[in-house]
């Protein structure tokens, strides 16, 4: 009987209090964050469902009958200088823009976090080597750097990704390095060491789980930055090759028709602003929800 209870005990009482639930409760408290999340979900739905309803041709094929057409029931956002449907272009452009932004954020996060963790944990010469090379990267203005990379490699999806990753991974190196430095000083890491944990185990089971909150928040906020950044690049003509639609490139095209057809500017611009805004709002909400100091 006694043995039985001892055996069953861990299973019997094993009920994990849900951390996700707790984070959601705190996230909900911020109105801005909830609005941001709703907007983000709406945008995502449009971008996901849109292509099933709208043929890609509408976004890329010239149709001179509808040149600079004002918004109407047929073309709800109107048409551009080549008579292409702006709504279709916003949807397809958004897919590219956001895909690039998300992928670039993830890759810069992975590369940067790994380098940062290595630099912070091992310190000494490894740290110096990584951080000094980083200084070289950071001494060149981001936009110049990305432009140079895209020019050198040519403008396509993969190269854009590489350029944006190279411009952004530096943030993560510094962020993760500083996190690792503070966390490795903590008593519980010393306790793990006293228990015989090796470096790898300490990084995997103590440092990363504790640093992950900060990284998630930073990543969310970075997505918004990269969306703007990618738009800037395509505005400057360094985005996807035409006729593929892209938000920044659409703005560049709209410049010529600003007087006659302001809708060409308004819709892609609003799309950029709304997306960046909602991602930022969600990021802010997440930061507050994940910050243990604000736990009430």
């Amino acid at each position: 009987m006694e043995k039985n209870t001892a055996n069953n005990a861990p299973q019997g009482v094993y009920k994990r209090p849900s951390q996700a639930k707790e984070i959601w409760r705190r996230f909900k408290k911020s109105k801005g964050a909830v609005i941001g999340l709703i907007m983000l979900v709406a945008i995502a739905l449009v971008l996901i469902i849109g292509p099933f309803l709208i043929p890609y041709d509408l976004a890329t094929t010239n149709n001179y009958d509808f040149m600079l057409a004002k918004p109407s029931a047929e073309h709800i956002f109107g048409c551009d200088g080549f008579g292409r449907d702006i709504f279709a272009r916003v949807v397809y452009g958004g897919r590219t823009s956001i895909a690039i932004a998300v992928l670039a954020t993830i890759s810069s996060c992975v590369v940067g976090s790994m380098l940062g963790a290595v630099a912070g944990f091992f310190g000494g010469k490894v740290d110096a080597l990584i951080m000094r090379s980083l200084d070289i990267f950071m001494s060149v203005p981001d936009i110049l750097f990305t432009m140079a990379v895209v020019y050198a490699l040519g403008a396509n999806f993969v190269n854009l990704l590489v350029a944006l990753t190279l411009a952004y991974f530096t943030n993560y190196v510094r962020l993760v390095r500083s996190q690792v430095l503070t966390l490795s000083e903590s008593d519980y890491v010393e306790a793990a060491r006293a228990g015989g944990s090796g470096s790898m185990r300490i990084i995997m089971s103590h440092i990363i789980p504790n640093a992950v909150g900060v990284i998630i928040v930073n990543t969310t906020l970075n997505v918004a930055k990269i969306i703007l950044y990618e738009s800037t690049l395509s505005f400057l003509g360094l985005g996807m090759p035409p006729p593929a639609p892209e938000w920044g490139a659409m703005l560049a095209e709209a410049r010529e028709f600003l007087r006659n057809a302001p809708h060409m500017m308004i819709f892609p611009a609003s799309a950029i602003v709304l997306t960046a805004c909602s991602v930022n709002l969600v990021g802010d909400g997440l930061r507050d929800a994940l910050d243990p100091h604000l736990k009430s």
Binding site: D187, G195, S197, S205, P209
Partner: peptide, 25 residues
């Protein structure tokens, strides 16, 4: 350790903390 607050990983449950050393070894 002195400080019962900082010497325990805040992201591990009580049983995980206590079992950690046994799992390591």
């Amino acid at each position: 350790f002195q400080d019962p607050y900082s010497s325990i990983d805040p992201r591990k449950s009580v049983i995980e903390v206590i079992a950690e050393y046994m799992l390591i070894h």
